[in-house]
Design a protein around this nucleic acid. Structure first.
Length: 894
DNA sequence: CTTGGATGGATCA
DNA sequence: TTGATCCAT
C-alpha cells in the first residue's frame, strides 16, 4: 500500500490543478555559502573528494558559471577559467564522500515547503513538487468576495512564458475581466468545449499560483537563507519545464496558450523523461526534433511506433497534458550508498572487499539509526549492487535479501554472502584471499521500510480503515475523480475597469513613494554588469546608501540583462561583449530558451502591429504603460522599504504589512449546470478523503504551522488552515505523534538496555538522546532550563479534550455543524458519525497500547516549539492582508 | 585513475 | 517479487 506507484488524475481534470516545482539554485553551493558567509558573492564550486585533477565538480554557483565553469569539469580546469574560484570539498567520512550535509539542508527546505501543502513530493534532495490546487481555489473564492487581492509586488522575479514581463500577463488577465469571452473564439478552435471553463480560468489560477510560489520562495529564503527557482503550471512536466526557463532566483508561469508555440521549437529532450535513450528513440522513429512535431501523429500511430503506454503518454505530453499526480512523499523509500573503484582501485582481495563492505554498511547503519529516530521505521530489505570485471567486461549485478537486523555486521555478512553465492567462481582457484573477478563498483542499499512497532501498524490500519470507509461513501455518491474543479457561480459585469484602476492607483501610489527614483532614464548603454556587481549593490543598500546611484545601476542591470537576452542570437558576440564576458552566463548563450524568448518577441511585435486596430478600443496603450511601470517596480522594488530586521529586504517586500490592499473584482462567470457543480463539490470532498488516506503515512506532524492558515493550534502554536477537517486532522496528528513518541521512547530504552548489556558499562549514559542536537540554531541558546523540562505524557488527554471549546469556525461552507462532546470541536454534521468513529478508534488504541503516564525524552520537543523565525514570519503574516482579508471574508459571507 | 560520483526513483520482463 | 536498466540531479 505504501508502495502505491504513480497515481493519475482523470483526463477531464487536466487543467484543474496548479502544480509548483521548486528547484534550489546550485544547492550544494548555497549550502557551502551559508556555512561560510565569507564566501558569499564569490565564485564557488563544490568538488567531490577525488584528489585527481582537483576533484570532480558537482555544483557551480552563478558567479563561477559566469566564468564558464560547469559541472563535469575537474577542479583544475575550473581554476584555469576562474583563478579565484573557491573549491569546496564534499566532506570525506569513511574514505568516501559524505553528502549528509546537503541531505539535511534539503530537509530543512522541505520542512518549509511542507507548510504550504500536504501534497508535497520531494523529487530529489533539492527539488520538490507542490500541488497547490486547493489553496489556489480558496483564493479564487476569496478573490470573488473581495477578501483577497493580488498584489503586484508579490510578482517580482516572476515571468510568464510568451510575455515580455509579468505585467503584460497581468494585463492580459485584466482585459479578460472586462470582456470574459474575448478569447473564446480562439479557445473554441483549440480546446474541447468541455474544457472551456477550465481554460478560461487557467491564466488567473496560474497567476494566483505564482503569488503562492512567491510566498513559498520568500519563506524558504527567510527561514533557511536559500534561494530557489520555481515553475508554475497545470502539471508536473510543465512546471518542471517552466522552472528551468528563468534561473536563478526566479519563477516562471507556463500559460496554457503558450504551450503550442513553445513546443513548436522545444527540443524533445528538454522534457523530463526524454533526455535519454527514450527521447532519442522517439526522435529517430518519428523523425522529429521538436515536441510540437509529434502532434502530427495520432495516438494510435504513436502507440504502434513506440508502445501502447509510451504512445499515449507522448500523445498527451505533446499537448501539454500530464496526468501524473503529485504523490505526497517526504521521506525517501530507500537509503543507500555506493562507491566506485576505478582502475587500479579495483577490489581484488577478499579482505579489501570486506573492508569496503564494512564502510558502506557503517554508513548505512548510521543513517538508518537517524532515520529510525525520526520516522520510527525499519528497513526490511537490503540490496547489494556490484560491478565485476569479468574478462574485461563490466558486469553489473544486484541481489536482494530480507532484513531482520540492520547492524553493520549483519549487513556486511549478508552482502558478502550474496556476492559470493551469485558469482560462479568467487575466489581465484588455489587462493584463499584473491577474488576471481575484480570489483569495480560496490553499493548497499536498504528499503522496504515498515513501521517499527506493531502498535504503530495498528494505528495505521486504523487510519487506513477510516480512509477506506470514506472512499466507500464517496463511491456511493458517485464520485470517482479526486480533483477539485473550480467553478464560479456569480456572474458579475463591469468589474474590469475596477481592476485596472486598482493597478493604476497602486502604481500611482508607488510612484509617489519612490518619488523621482523611478524616473531615472534607462541606461541601455551600460550593458553587461557582471553579477558580482548586483550583489555588491545589495550590500550597498544595506549600508544605507539607497538613492539614485545604486538604484540606477540596478535598474540598468535589469535592462541590460533583458537587452542581452533579446540581442542574443543576432550576430555572434561583438568585441564589446568580450570586454564584459561575465554578463551572461555561458549556458544562456546557446540556451534554447533564449532563442525561444527572442523569437517570441519578434512574433509578438508583428502581432501587435497587426492587432493594433482590434484592441485599440480597449485602451491597450494605457495597459502597456501599466505594464511598463509594473516592470519598473520590479527593479525598484528591491529597495528596502521599511525596517525589517533579520528579514532580507528582497523577501520582506513580499510581506509588507503597510501595503495597501485593494480587492480584485471577480471575473465574469461561464454558465454552469447545477448538476455539474454538485459533482464538483462532491469531488472536492473526495480530494480530502483521498488525502487523509495517505496522511498518516507521509505527513510530518511537527511541521504544520501554515502560512496560509488562519487558526492557531493551542497545542503547538501551529497555524492551521481554517477548515474543520484540517483542524481535526491536525489534532489527530498530535495524538498520533504523542503515541509515536511514546513508542519510540520505549524502543530507545529497550535498545539502550540491550546495548548496555552487550557492551559492559560505559559511563552513566543519560537517557538516550535521540536527536543529535546538531543544528546550531540561533534560538537554541535561550531555551535552556524551564522550557525544555519534559512534558508529562498525560497531556495526551489534552488532545481529546481541549481546554475550551473552539469557536464554531465561521462557516467555510454552509454545512450545518455540531459540537462534538468528546473533543469539544465543531464538526460538520455529515461528518459526525465518522468523527465519533475516530474517537472510538482512539480509545481502542489507547487500551491496546496500555498507555501509561511516562516521561518524554526531552530532545524530541525541539520541533514542537517552532523556531523564532517561524514565529516572526507568522506574526508578520498575520498582520498582513491575508489575515485582514480573511476576517473580511467571514464577515461578508455571513 | 578512463572518461560524471553518489544517490534515489521508476519501469519492465 | 526480483534483477536489470534507465533516468535525473
Amino acid at each position: 500500500m505504501s508502495n502505491s506507484t504513480r497515481a493519475f488524475v482523470g483526463m477531464q481534470n487536466k487543467y484543474d490543478r496548479v502544480v509548483l516545482l521548486v528547484d534550489m539554485d546550485c544547492f550544494f553551493c548555497q549550502v557551502e555559502e551559508k556555512q561560510h558567509p565569507e564566501y558569499q558573492g564569490k565564485p564557488l564550486a563544490v568538488v567531490q573528494y577525488n584528489p585527481w585533477r582537483g576533484g570532480g565538480i558537482i555544483a557551480v554557483n552563478y558567479a563561477a558559471r559566469a566564468k564558464g565553469v560547469t559541472r563535469h569539469m575537474r577542479g583544475d580546469e575550473a581554476k584555469e577559467l576562474c583563478h579565484d574560484i573557491i573549491l569546496c570539498k564534499v566532506p570525506n567520512i569513511r574514505e568516501k564522500a559524505d553528502t549528509s550535509k546537503y541531505r539535511d539542508a534539503g530537509k530543512e527546505v522541505a520542512n518549509v515547503l511542507q507548510r504550504f501543502t500536504q501534497l508535497l513530493e520531494r523529487a530529489s534532495v533539492d527539488e520538490a513538487y507542490l500541488d497547490i490546487t486547493e489553496t489556489v481555489n480558496q483564493r479564487v473564492e476569496q478573490l470573488q468576495t473581495g477578501s483577497f487581492a493580488l498584489k503586484p509586488e508579490e510578482l517580482v522575479n516572476c515571468h510568464a512564458v510568451g510575455y515580455d514581463n509579468i505585467g503584460e500577463y497581468v494585463n492580459k488577465i485584466t482585459n479578460r475581466f472586462a470582456n470574459p469571452y474575448v478569447d473564446d473564439e480562439r479557445y473554441v478552435l483549440a480546446y474541447d468545449p468541455n474544457d472551456l471553463p477550465a481554460v478560461r480560468q487557467s491564466d488567473l489560477r496560474l497567476l494566483i499560483g505564482a503569488c503562492i510560489a512567491g510566498e513559498v520562495r520568500a519563506a524558504v529564503k527567510a527561514e533557511t537563507g536559500y534561494e530557489c527557482s520555481a515553475g508554475i503550471a497545470h502539471n508536473k512536466i510543465l512546471a518542471k519545464l517552466a522552472a528551468g526557463m528563468n534561473k536563478p532566483n526566479k519563477q516562471t508561469i507556463l500559460p496554457l496558450a503558450q504551450i503550442p508555440p513553445l513546443f513548436d521549437q522545444l527540443p524533445v529532450g528538454k522534457i523530463k523523461g526524454m533526455g535519454g535513450k527514450f527521447g532519442e528513440t522517439v526522435c529517430e522513429t518519428l523523425g522529429v526534433k521538436f515536441l510540437g512535431q509529434v502532434l502530427k501523429y495520432s495516438e494510435k500511430d504513436l502507440q504502434r511506433k513506440l508502445d501502447e503506454k509510451s504512445g499515449t503518454w507522448l500523445h498527451n505530453i505533446a499537448r501539454g497534458i500530464d496526468l501524473e499526480a503529485v504523490t505526497p512523499r517526504f521521506y525517501s523509500k530507500s537509503i543507500g550508498c555506493c562507491k566506485k573503484f576505478p582502475g587500479r582501485n579495483n577490489i581484488t582481495g577478499l579482505k579489501t572487499l570486506q573492508h569496503w563492505l564494512g564502510e558502506l554498511a557503517s554508513e548505512i547503519n548510521d543513517r538508518l539509526e537517524k532515520d529510525f529516530i525520526e520516522n520510527n521505521r525499519k528497513a526490511k530489505q537490503m540490496v547489494v549492487q556490484y560491478v565485476q570485471d569479468i574478462d574485461g567486461q563490466e558486469v553489473a549485478s544486484s541481489r536482494s535479501m530480507p532484513l531482520n537486523q540492520c547492524d553493520q555486521e549483519t549487513l556486511v555478512k549478508q552482502s558478502l554472502e550474496l556476492i559470493k553465492t551469485n558469482t560462479k567462481t568467487f575466489l581465484r582457484p588455489g587462493s584463499e584471499a584473491a577474488l576471481n573477478n575484480a570489483i569495480k563498483f560496490l553499493g548497499i542499499s536498504v528499503g522496504k521500510f515498515e513501521s517499527a512497532s506493531s502498535a504503530q501498524n495498528s494505528l495505521q490500519t486504523m487510519f487506513a480503515n477510516q480512509a477506506a470507509k470514506k472512499r466507500r461513501i464517496s463511491v456511493e455518491e458517485g464520485v470517482e475523480k479526486p480533483v477539485v474543479v473550480v467553478e464560479q457561480t456569480k456572474p458579475k459585469q463591469t468589474e474590469g475597469g475596477k481592476m485596472k484602476s486598482f493597478f493604476a492607483n497602486y502604481l500611482q501610489a508607488r510612484k509617489e513613494e519612490h518619488n523621482g527614483t523611478d524616473k531615472v532614464d534607462k541606461m541601455p548603454s551600460e550593458e553587461g554588469l557582471p553579477k558580482e556587481e548586483t550583489k555588491s549593490d545589495k550590500l550597498a543598500e544595506e549600508t544605507a546608501t539607497p538613492l539614485n546611484a545604486s538604484e540606477a545601476r540596478k535598474k540598468s542591470f535589469f535592462e541590460s540583462f533583458k537587452k542581452k537576452m533579446m540581442d542574443e542570437s543576432v550576430p555572434k558576440d561583438s568585441s564589446d561583449d568580450k570586454a564584459t564576458p561575465t554578463s551572461t552566463p555561458p549556458e544562456f548563450r546557446e540556451s534554447f530558451f533564449v532563442k525561444y524568448l527572442k523569437q517570441q518577441r519578434e512574433v509578438k511585435k508583428d502581432a501587435e502591429q497587426s492587432n493594433e486596430n482590434t484592441s485599440k478600443a480597449d485602451n491597450s496603450s494605457e495597459m502597456q504603460d501599466l505594464a511598463a511601470e509594473l516592470d519598473d517596480i520590479e527593479s525598484t522594488n528591491n529597495e528596502p522599504q521599511q525596517t525589517y530586521e533579520s528579514v532580507p529586504p528582497e523577501q520582506s517586500n513580499n510581506y509588507n504589512p503597510q501595503q495597501e490592499v485593494v480587492a480584485l473584482p471577480s471575473p465574469e462567470q461561464p454558465s454552469t449546470s447545477k448538476r455539474k457543480l454538485e459533482q464538483q463539490n462532491a469531488s472536492e470532498t473526495a480530494t480530502l478523503t483521498d488525502f487523509t488516506n495517505t496522511y498518516v503515512e507521509y505527513a510530518r506532524p511537527e511541521l504544520r504551522p501554515g502560512l496560509i492558515s488562519f487558526v492557531k493550534c493551542e497545542e503547538c502554536g501551529a497555524q492551521i488552515p481554517d477548515d474543520v477537517k484540517a483542524l481535526q486532522t491536525h489534532r489527530d496528528h498530535h495524538f498520533a505523534q504523542q503515541l509515536n513518541r511514546q513508542l519510540r521512547s520505549e524502543q530507545r530504552e529497550e535498545a539502550q538496555r540491550s546495548r548496555l548489556n552487550a557492551t559492559k558499562t560505559t559511563a552513566a549514559s543519560p537517557p538516550a538522546k535521540p536527536v543529535p542536537a546538531k543544528k546550531a540554531k540561533k534560538a537554541s541558546g535561550a531555551t535552556a532550563a524551564p522550557t525544555t523540562t519534559p512534558k508529562p505524557v498525560n497531556s495526551i488527554t489534552k488532545f481529546l479534550a481541549p481546554k475550551q471549546p473552539l469557536e464554531p469556525p465561521p462557516s467555510c461552507s454552509n454545512a450545518p455543524m455540531e459540537l462534538c462532546a468528546e473533543c469539544k470541536t465543531y464538526v460538520k454534521s455529515v461528518d459526525m458519525p465518522e468523527h465519533l468513529d475516530f474517537h472510538m478508534a482512539k480509545k481502542l488504541q489507547r487500551e491496546l497500547n496500555q498507555l501509561e503516564v511516562r516521561t518524554i525524552i526531552t530532545a524530541t520537543n525541539k520541533k514542537s516549539t517552532p523556531p523564532p523565525a517561524n514565529k516572526k514570519l507568522n506574526s508578520t503574516l498575520n498582520s498582513t492582508s491575508a489575515n485582514h482579508s480573511i476576517t473580511k471574508f467571514f464577515t461578508q459571507s455571513n
